[in-house]
């Protein structure tokens, strides 16, 4: 049982990590959304598996939220938004895809090198999951930095959050995981609402460093 539970958790975490790389690799917006949905489904499976292994039924709620809200509702809503607002279907990159992937690999190596030594005393299950979770978080951040369109930035944030939830469900007996995932869901729902309401089609110039000096209330 111990071996199997470890292998399955590892497999699901690795699936999320692969999806994290997949997000960086896509050039079309719809493919980004589909990859994100896949990552959310992997998170749901990982959370459900942890619920089973840790005998913590409340994690099934987290898994349910990941499955229904992030695996289904959010991708559908984003599809609808992209169509409705006529957002560009291609991904606007600040750094070429090749370089993004290389930086991504470096970040994964960094998180493994950082996490594995400091968690020497923790259970193997936690160690590996934590390293994977930190990699997913950093890849999400990388996506937010290198992709400038509002929708891809939100997807990057949600990928980052998937990594955070993976860390939280893997930490044995951590309370409030359900509350945290609800809080994140509210935040994401408000953002999607904001994109729709304010018709945020394209990127925001102020998030792009080269425009920082030219567009600000400070110009005289």
């Amino acid at each position: 049982m111990g071996q199997i539970s470890y292998e399955v958790a590892h497999l699901l975490g690795a699936t999320m990590l692969m999806a994290g790389f997949g997000l960086l690799y896509q050039r079309r917006l719809y493919a980004v959304l589909n990859t994100f949905a896949f990552q959310a489904l992997a998170l749901a499976a990982a959370a459900a598996w942890q619920a089973h292994v840790q005998h913590a039924p409340h994690l099934y709620v987290t898994a349910g939220i990941a499955l229904v809200f992030k695996g289904m509702l959010v991708p559908f809503a984003l599809h609808w938004l992209v169509e409705r607002l006529g957002i560009h279907r291609s991904v606007d990159t600040a750094l070429s895809i090749g370089w993004t992937m290389i930086v991504g690999v470096v970040l994964v190596a960094l998180s493994i090198l950082l996490v594995l030594p400091v968690t020497a005393n923790a259970a193997a299950l936690t160690r590996e999951s934590l390293a994977v979770a930190m990699s997913v978080v950093l890849l999400g951040m990388l996506m937010m930095i290198t992709r400038r369109n509002a929708v891809t930035q939100v997807v990057g944030f949600m990928a980052l959050e998937n990594g955070l939830l993976l860390a939280a469900v893997s930490a044995k007996g951590m309370p409030l995981v359900v509350e945290i995932s609800v809080a994140f869901s509210v935040l994401i729902a408000m953002t999607l609402f904001g994109i729709f309401f304010f018709r945020i089609r394209e990127r925001f110039d102020t998030l792009d460093l080269q425009y920082l000096e030219t567009y600000r209330g400070d110009r005289q």
């Binding site: 944030f157 980052l160 959050e161 955070l164 939280a168 930490a171 953002t191 904001g194 925001f204 998030l207």
Partner: peptide, 30 residues
């Protein structure tokens, strides 16, 4: 709206990282 978006993106990442730190403290305590 630009200001709000910038605020949202930067602070969401910020509190995301804070949550990771919080989880790590829990792992240290557990």
């Amino acid at each position: 709206i630009e200001a709000a978006w910038k605020y949202f993106i930067l602070c969401s990442v910020g509190i995301g990282l804070a949550l990771f730190g919080t989880t790590l403290v829990y792992l240290a305590a557990q």
